[in-house]
């Protein structure tokens, strides 16, 4: 009697658990080589690493044909831990290397990791031009509002008034909105997600990887070590809590402007345009570029 009643629930629990257990991110890690990682305890980059790998798996990426490119900074150290083709480039230039890789070998899946300073300050030019070009790349911008690795200097996304070691009396300039910048520059897929919602992050990255064209995913992250310490939130848990309060999932009919004016960041797919032909397809002849309309006067 007991054997029947015991076995059945166990099987159900196991199968249920199997459904809920996410893909084991360790399968994509170079664990025998480059651990422990160099990020601070409590840093969001570890969560991003895990969610990214699960998204790679969901998208059907293979280790041998995935190329992960990154710039300089804390986020720039992402690829060294991943067991695929990895390229750690110069500061701000990751997208340029990625462009070369993708053009030379279009069958490779190229993902680019950059921090906010990397992508938007020193790499701002490459960022907007990559967005405009619409080459099939996925750019992941990890935004922690500060230069973490150099010890807390102001970045293009440091909020107005916030302190950093180079703005000891507060930041006088306004920050960039990474997603607005990408949309303005012509990126065809733009999403924002947060480290406080790993499943959402995985979903957003997955959608970005699947998008045919240039996709940009901004991941709002924490830097309690530099940003938090200088701005009165030195605990990573407090920063997580604050991130949760500051962000809101995008819903249909949501007034983005109102959310923004109240200081909340919408999370979700903010822009997706599938009508723009991507650069490579035109190059390879799948889609012929449309000739521009003649603007000259009729003879």
């Amino acid at each position: 009697m007991s054997s029947e009643t015991v076995t059945e629930p166990v099987v159900t629990v196991a199968s249920k658990a199997a459904k809920n257990i996410p893909y084991d991110a360790r399968l994509w890690l170079r664990h025998s080589k480059k651990f422990p990682h160099l990020w601070c305890p409590g840093c969001g980059l570890g969560i991003i690493l895990g969610s990214s790998i699960r998204a790679f798996h969901d998208a059907g990426f293979e280790k041998d044909t995935t190329v992960v490119v990154a710039g300089i900074g804390c986020t720039g150290r992402m690829p060294v831990y991943m067991d695929c083709n990895t390229l750690h480039t110069t500061h701000g230039r990751a997208l340029t290397f990625a462009t070369g890789v993708k053009l030379a070998k279009p069958h490779l899946d190229v993902v680019v990791y950059m921090g906010d300073g990397d992508a938007l300050a020193i790499g701002g030019n490459h960022f907007i031009h990559s967005a405009r070009r619409n080459l099939n790349l996925t750019a992941i911008v990890v935004n922690n509002s500060i230069y973490g690795m150099t010890g807390g200097q102001v970045s293009p996304t440091t909020p107005h008034g916030a302190r950093s070691t180079t703005t000891p009396r507060g930041q006088f300039a306004r920050p960039f909105d990474t997603c607005d910048l990408a949309i303005g520059a012509g990126a065809t897929f733009v999403a924002r997600t947060s480290i406080t919602n790993a499943r959402h992050m995985q979903k957003m990255i997955h959608q970005g990887l699947k998008h045919d064209g240039f996709s940009m995913i901004e991941i709002v992250s924490n830097c309690h070590t530099s940003f938090g310490r200088l701005n009165g939130i030195p605990s990573h848990l407090d920063m997580f809590q604050q991130l949760k309060e500051r962000t809101v999932l995008v819903k249909p009919d949501m007034d983005m402007e109102e959310e923004k004016s109240e200081g909340r960041l919408p999370l979700g797919v903010l822009h997706c345009d599938t009508t723009v032909p991507n650069y490579l397809r035109q190059k390879l002849g799948d889609v012929a570029p449309k000739p521009a309309k003649a603007t000259g006067r009729e003879p």
Binding site: V69, T96, F97, T99, V101, A104
Partner: peptide, 11 residues
């Protein structure tokens, strides 16, 4: 940057 990226793929 693009030249180096392409060269890394073998071109």
């Amino acid at each position: 940057g693009a030249v180096i990226g392409a060269s890394l793929t073998g071109l």
